[in-house]
């Protein structure tokens, strides 16, 4: 696969070349939009701080909200109540500066969304240009979840900063085509560039994390034994069911479907939902299968650490640390994972 060495200037030219056919989104700089992803309008290398922005990349794969269908509700309209798919504007995106954890989440969610044509279409629509991590934050734990600060999974192109320049490696055919647009401004990579990247990869592998491949250990454990573990109650006592973790989590993909109508025009939308909320499971009869907080708290962690790996293989957590960073009552998923591994 193609690889180029790009200095900041060359990145700017590359962004400008890609902007011809795609909208480019980058982590927003400090200011009112901080923490979100913003449309790039001046084509220079954006300042991307260490760690992940508050909003995960899933917002490009599950737009908030996403129109699934639209319909008329005017009774005299012959097409009344006949749903149709919304027209696409055809514009594609580049999501630039995606950290390895976020990039990896796209493929994990795709395991559950194989039959979901909208998710598949959004994967088509959004090209991912990753940026490996030269600095690991205190809340980061990607290596403990099967990822790496140097990871490229889910990226079309992966950038690694070395001495103020970037080694850009195409990881997919789509990435190859995008990187071709940088050919005129970039330089060929040298052997020493490649060995510098390999040295970083080696260093990432040699990290001193105590947990490796938790999914294998967790899959081997008895489901009901984990479910009945004594520590859930203590966690539930602290949790306020605010749902922040689920909205910030790149691998929480649960959603709600709702209909909206205004002046005879309607649409069926989907938006993120959270298993932290009692309404998530409430029956019309009033019965609620997860009516207690402990059931909801437990469901989120069990889904990530046991149900998902049992079904698909890997754990549904990429170690981005957003939930650790932003939980108002300091619940730490790393501790939960350790507790589960010790059962």
């Amino acid at each position: 696969m193609k690889a180029l060495k790009l200095d900041r200037n060359a990145i700017g030219q590359w962004l400008s070349a890609m902007a011809g056919e795609r909208d480019i989104y980058v982590p927003a700089p400090d200011g009112p939009a901080k923490g979100t992803w913003t449309l790039l309008t001046d084509y220079s290398m954006p300042e991307i701080k260490p760690g992940v922005p508050a909003r995960p990349v899933k917002n490009f794969l599950f737009p908030q909200p996403e129109t699934l269908l639209k319909f008329s509700t005017v009774p005299t309209d012959p097409n009344c109540c006949l749903p149709s798919e919304p027209e696409e504007n055809g514009r594609k995106n580049v999501v630039f500066g995606v950290r390895p954890c976020d990039a990896r989440s796209i493929g994990l969610n795709a395991l559950a969304c194989k039959a979901d044509t909208y998710y598949q279409a959004n994967m088509e629509k959004n090209a991912i240009i990753g940026l490996t991590c030269s600095q690991v934050c205190s809340t980061c734990f990607c290596s403990e979840t099967g990822g790496s600060p140097m990871g490229t999974e889910g990226c079309d192109v992966s950038l690694t900063e070395i001495d103020g320049s970037y080694i850009a490696r195409a990881m997919t055919e789509r990435g190859e085509a995008l990187l071709a647009l940088a050919e005129s401004s970039g330089k060929e990579v040298t052997d020493s560039d490649i060995s510098a990247v390999e040295a970083l990869e080696e260093k990432a592998r040699a990290g001193s994390d105590e947990i490796r491949n938790p999914e294998e250990q967790l899959r081997a454990k008895d489901l009901m034994e984990l479910y009945n573990a004594p520590f859930w109650q203590e966690l539930a006592d602290r949790c306020i069911n605010c749902g922040a973790c689920t909205f910030l989590c790149p691998t929480c993909y649960c959603f709600d479907i709702q209909d909206e109508t205004l002046h005879g025009k309607g649409r069926r939308i989907r938006c993120q939902d959270s298993c932290m909320f009692p309404l998530f499971t409430l029956h019309a009869s009033g019965h609620n299968p997860r009516g207690q907080k402990i059931q909801r708290v437990r469901n989120r962690f069990m889904h990530k650490m046991k149900y998902f790996p049992d079904r698909f293989g890997p754990i549904s957590c990429v170690g981005c640390g957003r939930c650790v960073r932003d939980c108002p009552v300091n619940i730490d998923i790393r501790e939960v994972m350790r507790s589960l591994l010790h059962i």
Binding site: C113, A115, D116, C254, D273, M302, H303
Partner: peptide, 17 residues
């Protein structure tokens, strides 16, 4: 159970795995 997608994705009807 409460359901939304009906095709095993959205999470509402999950009972354990």
């Amino acid at each position: 159970n409460r359901m939304k997608c009906g095709i095993g994705i959205c999470g509402h009807c999950s009972v354990g795995p």
